[in-house]
Design a protein around this nucleic acid. Structure first.
Length: 427
RNA sequence: UCCAGCGUAGCUCAAUGGUGGAGCAUCCGGCUGUUAACCGGAGGGUUGCAAGUUCGAGUCUUGCCGCUGGAGCCA
């Protein structure tokens, strides 16, 4: 029986299988906390109630020893969780020796080096369960709205956005790169399926060493045919509201374990505050930041801006120079790109980037030239504009940054089971 | 790549330039309801590496290595 179901088995004799989480004792009584990945339950062994053999075994159990325990489920207010197992028998699988992670505090380097074991701990367990629910909510949102999941390749022939550093992979004697976005493939896919999304890992070989960066992270990217910037902002707002609400309703227990202040998440409902880049610059100046029109925002600026609001903040119409070549320009002001970023509250920074795509062949060819990109690598992409071009928009949302915000974590590395960071690929 | 801080027991941390300690973990013992249980005892060290200053270096200096945070870049 799974530990999470034990509250429904009061009075019954059951067998659980799991690992020793911690042990406590007093005189002739032993308390064994057992976890099985679905929950933790306290098992009690009294010397007067069990055989000497079983009691001695209970006395010797070490942290993370694997075993089966048979006992009777009893409601007990003194037990963590309100129920305990009055133990009758123990079948030991393995007596663990010298488990490295003790119940006391540890540093991040040590814990990251033992990430495969750290995941057994209560808090890490809760975070990864929330991740699982979050991803399911993301997929459900798009699936329910008639989007088609169209996977985009991980090995790509050229840079999607040209500038950023890519991981190079030798591909039968040719150079290929790990994808940094499914974006370019989403666009022809939207012409084939109308509303599409891709979801998968993306890679950036940037030498970034901050709480917001991983070299391998997961992104979900919708692309919608015949949608303009406004349409896609509304989609993003609905999307974020939906996934936050879903985590709130499905992960109450896990949010409690990580001690998240859920009142802040309950405020996340569409629509979100929406300002232009130019207004953002004015607000930053008012806050005393030395910025000028044309600057891209750094982490510091993002934090100042997002702290002005309780909900995620939509910033749209950035200077075109700051943005990718495929962004459509604002017809009212050619210096502006029809793009929008969404900053998470509480200083978590950018979680969404997206916008309307340039759909005119001549203009896009000109941009490719201006950005000094190899045109021949983009011929297939230009075909989207050659054969029945259409207005379309999309965005990408970073799973780990979103999860870090939802869980109120100080660093994205805890939001993914095995984080890949600058010079860190073990375990 | 640059800037800052840190590196002492398996882990988390103390130690004025003058005999390297504590808590947890481990092992032994005690306690019949423990809550990161508690109480008593034991074992556990090339103080990241190399050189230098000094009568004497965990402590000061230089270099290297590693870690952490930040910047730039980005989701």
């Amino acid at each position: 029986m799974l530990i999470k179901d034990i509250q429904n088995a009061e009075g019954k004799t059951v067998t659980i299988a799991g690992w020793v989480y911690n042990t406590r004792s007093s005189g002739k009584i032993r308390f064994i906390l057992v976890r099985d990945g679905t929950g933790i339950v306290q098992c009690v062994f009294s010397q007067k109630d069990v055989s000497q053999q079983v009691f001695e075994l209970a006395d010797k159990l070490t942290q993370e020893s694997s075993l089966y325990i048979t006992g009777t489920v009893k409601k007990e207010d003194k037990a963590p969780g309100g129920f305990e197992l009055v133990g009758q028998d123990i079948k030991l699988i393995q007596m663990t020796e010298n488990y490295p992670i003790s119940p006391k505090e540890h540093g991040t380097d040590f814990l990251m080096g033992h990430r495969h074991l750290w995941l057994r701990s209560r808090r890490q367990n809760a975070i990864i369960i929330i991740r699982s629910q979050l991803i399911k909510a993301m997929r459900d949102f798009f699936d329910n709205q008639g989007f088609i999941l169209v996977d985009t390749p991980i090995l790509t022939p050229a840079a999607v956005e040209g500038t950023t550093t890519l991981f190079e992979v030798e591909y039968f004697g040719e150079k290929t790169y790990l994808t940094q976005s499914g974006q370019l493939y989403n666009e022809p896919d939207a012409a084939a399926f109308n509303k599409v999304y891709c979801f998968g890992p993306t890679f950036r070989a940037e030498k970034s060493k901050t709480r917001r960066h991983l070299t391998e992270f997961w992104m979900i990217e919708p692309e919608v045919a015949f949608a303009d910037l406004n349409d896609i902002i509304i989609l993003a707002e609905d999307f974020i509201s939906y996934i936050v609400e879903r985590v709130l309703s499905k992960c109450q227990e896990q949010l409690k374990v990580i001690e998240r202040d859920i009142s802040k998440l309950e405020k996340i409902t569409a629509p979100f505050p929406r300002i232009t880049y130019t207004e953002a610059i004015e607000q930053l100046k008012k806050a005393g930041k030395p910025v000028k029109w044309g600057d891209d925002f750094g982490a510091d600026e993002e934090t100042v801006l997002s702290n002005l609001y309780e909900k995620p903040l939509v910033i749209h119409r950035y200077p075109a120079e700051c943005k990718a070549f495929y962004m459509k320009r604002d017809q009212d002001d050619d210096k502006l790109a029809l793009g929008a970023d969404i900053l998470a509250p509480e200083g978590y920074g950018e979680i969404v980037g997206g916008g309307q795509r340039e759909d005119d062949l001549k203009t896009l060819e000109k941009r490719i030239q201006e950005y000094k990109l190899p045109k021949q690598a983009f011929e297939w992409y230009l075909d989207v504009r050659r054969y029945g071009t259409f207005p379309h928009s999309g965005f990408g949302l970073g799973v780990e940054r979103t999860l870090a915000w939802i869980c109120s974590l100080p660093h994205v590395r805890e939001t993914i089971p095995y984080p890949r960071m600058l010079e860190k690929v073990y375990p």
